[in-house]
Design a binder for these strands. Structure first.
Lengths: 339, 339
DNA sequence: ATAATTTACTTAACCGTTTAAGTGATCAAC
DNA sequence: GTTGATCACTTAAACGGTTAAGTAAATTAT
């Protein structure tokens, strides 16, 4: 059966399509009685307006895009939940795009947004991203963009982050307080905003709380768990191996735990571990994992709310707003035995 | 700056919009030289066709929808990865919708697909879903739908599943082989296809491998972890408490582990645990978790491939196809000490 | 040399909505 | 009693593409 259109409703009721359209949008130009008749027929025939005809005419798609490095990460899953909660409430549709941490993908994806597909964009940058022309191109088309978590500091737009510097500082200090003297930090990028902030927090904490020239030890990891494990095995096999590790992303935890097991290093006795992680199984790991837990859901929700605030205005311009929602250090067994 | 349209290109080159359109789609009606000129101008001005104008005219959106109960679950995250991989390769866009296990949401979401928004749908049912009119309504509009994992058995369409019966049978047998005599299974629904299959596998295995009248013990859990933990505490506190537990969904694992810890029941000595889970931290849990690991990524990919096969045909009709991709039992420390 | 075909376009309708502008009828105002 | 509003619509253009049908010129066939 063919889809019901305005034209069909119009013919059925001997009205113009304009009248139907206005009746359904509850225009004051249409009499109460006519509105009622239109409504009745529309529901009876189960009329659903064509999704794209309206978008074309109004130049508004009621659709936003979410651009993420990956989805198999608790932080991003939870952020999607937060975004979806707001989008559903506002009646918006959500397109999802994964960059898999590739800059070219990010570029190609954003390019696609330049002609009306979406009204706005929520995005977390790739670990590779270090040039921002594609982002400028998008804003030149007046499409509002809100960054969350992995933000672009040079662009004037809204940014939702967590207190990465302080969290990392706190995590480092916690390790030092627990007795660690050779703390290493595992990073995944040297241009990512969050990586830089976390490295800074780490370095500042070392400087402030370790008396002598503190040995800064930054280990750059990649996307492949096997490569990462190999890397770790080398580092943890050395004489002056770290006695404390901070993982700046969740997925590095597994590599750390497995490597320690393989090398018969016990956590927390031989090495203490803190991870930036939203993995809900942190409390039931062996040992339970001390985490910096980010407000992932809230960040997604805040990002979406900020975007919709801009979309609901006529101009749709986003302030250079900076919302910081704090993370939480949750101490567990990987840094304090029995905790 | 205003967006570049076909009309602008046409004016610039003194051609009709039709000629431009055909040139860009590499039509044989356009001379080689003209095509070259059009291409050159289009790339120079960074022309990007309006997303919805073409969709409206061609009644094809190059967009699919993925309807999921939730995203904060490794199975669904990985499935999204599989789906996205195929969609990106085929140049399709992916809309994501979460039902949060609510039937009304599922209905409302599907209703929205009835007027051109998407070319096809990939879906995993809600735990509540036990009527299928909304699905029939959708297929009456000729929109192909592929189920994956949580399928609807009564609908004639393609379905991608894993071998739930066999996996559950195997898991149960494994527990019995490990010495369990009072095996309980935690389920989340009594109409979900996967739940039924998994219960059946469990019951059949009990019948086949436990000599006497085997005590079937099905515990229905909900969405709230606290409620589930309370429930479990009651069950595990009883005299004749289970000595083996099968969790049919990943998220129940945390409740089980925490409850056992609280009751000072040790895994695997006092209780052995197997979970249907794709959580990558299963090997580093305390103790490491024996899992039935589903081919989540492959299932997502297969579902998407099946859908696109239908979309690429002119008729777009989906066979009542049934693809089963087997799961794997991975034995770890929660059933065999030290494994 | 004329008819038939091919080439390389153009014209115009169309997809399904929205909306600015127009219209005829009714009613109030001065 | 003409002007001015107000009401309840209709007309038609527009959004930005796609495509069937048409066409003039060049080429090929007979």
């Amino acid at each position: 059966m063919d889809n019901i259109t305005l034209k069909m409703l119009a013919k059925e009721l001997n009205l113009s399509t304009a009248a139907i359209s206005k009746a359904l949008r509850d225009s004051h130009e249409i009499s109460f009685e006519t509105k009622r008749r239109v409504q009745e027929l529309a529901t009876r025939l189960n009329y659903i307006p064509n999704a794209y005809a309206g978008s074309l005419r109004r130049k508004k798609s009621k659709t936003i895009a979410v651009v993420l490095p990956e989805v198999a990460d608790s932080f991003f899953s939870l952020a999607i939940n937060g975004i979806e909660a707001v989008a559903e409430e506002k009646g918006y549709h959500v397109l999802i795009y994964l960059t898999h941490e590739h800059f070219d993908r990010e570029q190609a994806i954003l390019k696609n947004f330049q002609n009306g597909r979406v009204d706005g964009v929520l995005m977390s940058l790739t670990a590779e991203t270090d040039s921002y022309q594609h982002i400028c191109d998008l804003s030149s088309k007046q499409i509002p963009l809100v960054f969350f978590d992995r933000i672009c500091e040079v662009k004037d737009t809204a940014k939702i982050t967590t207190n990465d510097f302080e969290s990392s500082y706190l995590a480092t200090k916690h390790l030092i307080d627990c007795g660690c003297r050779r703390v290493a930090i595992l990073s995944i990028s040297n241009h990512l905003s969050i990586s830089n902030k976390r490295l800074e927090g780490y370095e500042q904490a070392l400087k402030a709380h370790l008396p002598d020239q503190p040995p800064v030890n930054v280990v750059f990891c990649g996307n492949d768990p096997d490569t990462n494990s190999l890397f770790l095995k080398k580092i943890m096999g050395e004489e002056e191996r770290p006695d404390g590790i901070i993982a700046t992303v969740e997925k590095l935890t597994t590599s750390i735990y497995l490597t320690c097991k393989e090398l018969a290093l016990s956590i927390p006795e031989d090495v203490k571990v803190v991870s930036f992680s939203n993995n809900s199984s942190a409390p039931i790991l062996n040992p339970s994992l001390t985490t910096i837990t980010q407000p992932a859901f809230e960040m997604g929700r805040a990002a979406a709310n900020t975007l919709f605030k801009a979309l609901e205005k006529k101009n749709g311009i986003l302030m250079n707003e900076n919302l910081v929602i704090p993370s939480e250090l949750i101490v567990r067994g990987s840094t304090v035995a029995g905790a």
